[in-house]
Design a protein around this nucleic acid. Structure first.
Length: 218
DNA sequence: AAAACGGGGGC
DNA sequence: GCCCCAGTTTT
């Protein structure tokens, strides 16, 4: 693709994703933009299917809605509640630790900037950027495996790691698209642009795509 | 750079 | 049965 194609691509995807299933964290974000809910839901969603994540998130938030309330739950209780998300013991520990830090050092509020968010145990660049964009509506570029894969497949960036992709996008992606870019590409990635054997024939932006690294497609 | 965390679902 | 999944931390 040409760099100038990005405007057309975003425009097409904006229209197309309305008809597709939205990523779970985006769904949760739309219910009420509570940064704490976004943060915890994102932690739960790591390497875990959407429906399982949604169920676990709903159960956990029915027990506690704030860091203070959640801190009163035992680690075992959290683990039992969020089961069967992947890495559930690990995540229970992470959630407990994050709540403790939020209450003790951040007055029970989720930080609204990258630097502070990244200090939290279990929060990497992907999670931190998602909280900033969905929770605080601030410019940020959240790069997960979908964004990393598709940005390279399109030929928009040429990078080896998600972190490199984030910095490359910061250089060339128009800032007005930063917040929504992640949601558009994740939705496309889950519906059509799969890691293996993507369904290129029905992709709305196929005419702009270089298909870098795509061996077989449907 | 690679391993570890981990259960569920698709094929 | 084998492989993959909105990652991050540890070795």
């Amino acid at each position: 693709m040409k760099d100038s194609d990005i405007h057309k691509i975003v425009e097409i995807l904006r229209d197309a994703v309305k008809n597709w299933k939205q990523p779970i964290v985006t769904q949760i974000a739309e219910r009420g933009k509570d940064p704490f809910r976004i943060l915890i839901s994102t932690i739960l969603s790591l390497r875990t299917k959407d429906d399982v994540t949604a169920l676990a998130s709903e159960r956990l938030f029915s027990l506690a809605k704030t860091p203070e309330e959640m801190l009163r739950l035992g680690e075992e209780e959290i683990a039992k509640t969020i089961y069967p998300v992947g890495f559930y013991r690990n995540k229970a520990k992470t959630i407990k630790e994050i709540c403790k830090t939020l209450v003790e050092r951040y007055n029970g509020k989720v930080p609204d900037n990258l630097e502070e968010l990244l200090k939290l145990r279990g929060v990497g660049r992907k999670t931190a950027n998602l909280v900033i964009t969905l929770g605080y509506n601030k410019p940020g570029i959240c790069v997960d495996t979908h964004v990393h894969r598709i940005s390279n497949r399109l030929g928009y960036v040429k990078t080896k790691t998600p972190e490199e992709t984030e910095f490359a996008l910061r250089e060339k992606l128009p800032v007005e698209y930063w917040i929504e870019f992640n949601d558009l590409l994740v939705t496309l990635g889950q519906s059509i642009c799969h890691p293996i054997s993507p369904r290129c024939s029905m992709c709305p932006i196929k005419e702009y795509c270089d298909r870098i690294g795509v061996k077989r497609s449907r």
